[in-house]
Every structure is written in structure tokens, then in C-alpha cells.
């Protein structure tokens, strides 16, 4: 049931590169990452590629398959016609290091800019009580495997290097939203999300949601509610007036 797959894989580094043609035998049930591994083992031993779990859990193997941002380990070859040539290229939004590996440090920088979780004191018995219903939204966001495919896809920074300093990207809007909705957090990051993280630059096109392998409703469940919360904070006349005097929700603005 196996067949010879024809592939084009981007080979190169920061300076230059090209799509190199390969033909590689593949077996039933295989995914794109299997084909890439077989290439590595038999034809291109120095082909650079990231992977860890091979089960869609670690978010390492992000790339673009026929131009579509995907996890290589979750992209089955049966999705393509056996006659079709599959083209694999690195994520476009990040500088390439070598072959399919790119420099994703932008994301780690954005993570550092985000003020941490700050809970209040626990209950007298040392435990913390939260209801399942209240943690479910946050749990949806914490399914994120940091594959950075959403970051790669977002048009605000794809092909717009100049926007990167002021834009944290959908993965981190998710994180702002998660913390904002956390029942125990005492920080108010709404202003920061809007200004420093660039939430305002997002025009809710939902492209990020479409590529998320964890099926997180990034736009509907995180970004839009977060935008509303920012608006609440800024234009609610009572809060506006009173924000210097008393805090409506007793959180500390960071």
C-alpha cells in the first residue's frame, strides 16, 4: 500500500535557499513528519527539523505544508493525492535558521513581557477553591501547545516585521485573556494588553483560530471578550471617574 511520494522541501539558511525535490517511499497511515524523517535517515542526514512528541502534544513540528500552516506530525498523507507533490516550507513569519527550523525567539520575548499570575492568599486550610465552571475557559486557553502557528498566520506580523515590537500576537492575547478570566488573579492587565501588547491592532479576522491545532477559539473566546473587557475598563464612566479613587474589582493595574 506504500507508494513513492514526491516532495519539495525548503533547504537553506538565512542567506539563501531553495525548494529541493525528493522522492521518498511512504507507507500506509504515515504523516508528513514520517516522510521528512525518512528523507533524513536515507537521503538528507543534515536536514534540520524540529519535533518531539510526534503526537500533536508538544507543538515543535510547525511548518507550512503546501502553503498551509500545520503540525507535520498531525498531517496525514492520505489528505493528499498520491500523485500530488507535497511542498514543505518553514513558517514564514519567523527568520529561518536552517531548512525547516526557524528562529521563534520572538515568542519567548513576548512571554517575558507578560506580568505573571498573582493570586491572593489561600483559604485557611491552605487549599484554594475554584469551581469547575469558572476554570473551564482558562483551561481551554491552557490547551495551547505553543506551536506558534497562530502567530505565524496573523497578518499583522506576517510580512510586517515592523509591527512585531508592538504586537504580542494571538497566542499571547490568549494568555492575557486567561489571566483576566482567572478567578484568583489580582492583577489587571487590560490596559497593558491594549497598549503594550497591541490588542488594538487585531481586527478579528479569525485566521489564527483557523490554524490552531488545538481548536482553541482564539478570536471568539479570548480576543473578542478581551477587547470588550478593555472597553469596559476604559469607557465605563464610573470606572473612568473612579479608577483613581476606588477599584471596581479590587485588582491592581500592572
Amino acid at each position: 500500500m506504500g507508494y513513492d511520494l514526491s516532495m519539495r522541501v525548503w533547504r537553506g539558511d538565512v542567506d539563501s535557499g531553495e525548494l529541493a525535490p525528493y522522492t521518498v517511499p511512504v507507507e500506509e497511515g504515515e504523516v508528513v513528519l514520517d516522510a521528512v524523517h525518512r528523507l533524513q535517515a536515507t537521503q538528507a542526514p543534515d536536514l534540520a527539523v524540529r519535533w518531539n512528541c510526534k503526537a500533536g502534544k508538544c507543538g515543535s513540528c510547525s511548518a507550512e505544508v503546501n502553503g498551509r500552516p500545520r503540525l507535520m506530525c498531525m498531517t496525514r498523507l492520505t489528505d493528499y493525492d498520491p500523485d500530488e507533490t507535497i511542498t514543505v516550507t518553514p513558517m514564514r513569519t519567523f527568520p529561518v535558521v536552517k531548512d525547516l527550523v526557524c528562529d521563534v525567539s520572538y515568542n519567548y520575548e513576548k512571554a517575558r513581557e507578560l506580568p505573571a499570575f498573582a493570586p491572593g492568599p489561600p483559604d485557611p486550610d491552605g487549599k484554594r477553591r475554584m469551581m469547575q465552571a469558572d476554570v473551564e475557559r482558562g483551561q481551554e486557553f491552557r490547551k495551547c501547545i505553543e506551536c506558534f502557528l497562530c502567530q505565524n498566520t496573523c497578518h499583522v506580523i506576517r510580512d510586517h516585521e515592523e509591527n512585531k515590537p508592538a504586537f504580542a500576537g494571538p497566542r499571547f492575547f490568549l494568555r492575557y485573556a486567561e489571566l483576566d478570566m482567572h478567578p484568583l488573579d489580582t492583577n489587571d492587565r487590560r490596559q497593558l494588553a491594549q497598549e503594550a501588547a497591541g490588542l488594538g491592532m487585531c481586527n478579528i479576522t479569525k485566521c489564527c483560530t483557523e490554524v490552531c491545532p488545538e481548536n482553541i477559539k482564539i478570536t471568539d473566546n479570548a480576543i473578542i471578550p478581551m477587547k470588550e473587557r478593555v472597553v469596559d475598563r476604559r469607557y465605563d464612566p464610573l470606572v473612568w471617574l473612579g479608577s483613581k479613587i476606588f477599584r471596581r474589582d479590587e485588582r491592581t493595574e500592572v
Binding site: P122, G126, K127, M130, Q132, H182
Partner: peptide
């Protein structure tokens, strides 16, 4: 494990709101 909650972990809850 409780310390992880201190740092932001969101475990599944019991009906009483505990881990």
C-alpha cells in the same frame, strides 16, 4: 501540587472546588 496552583495551574475541580 498545591504550589503549582499558586503559580497559575488550573487543575480539574471536585464539586467542592478542590483539585
Amino acid at each position: 501540587v498545591l504550589e503549582l496552583e499558586e503559580w497559575g495551574a488550573l487543575f480539574d475541580r471536585t464539586p467542592d472546588g478542590l483539585i
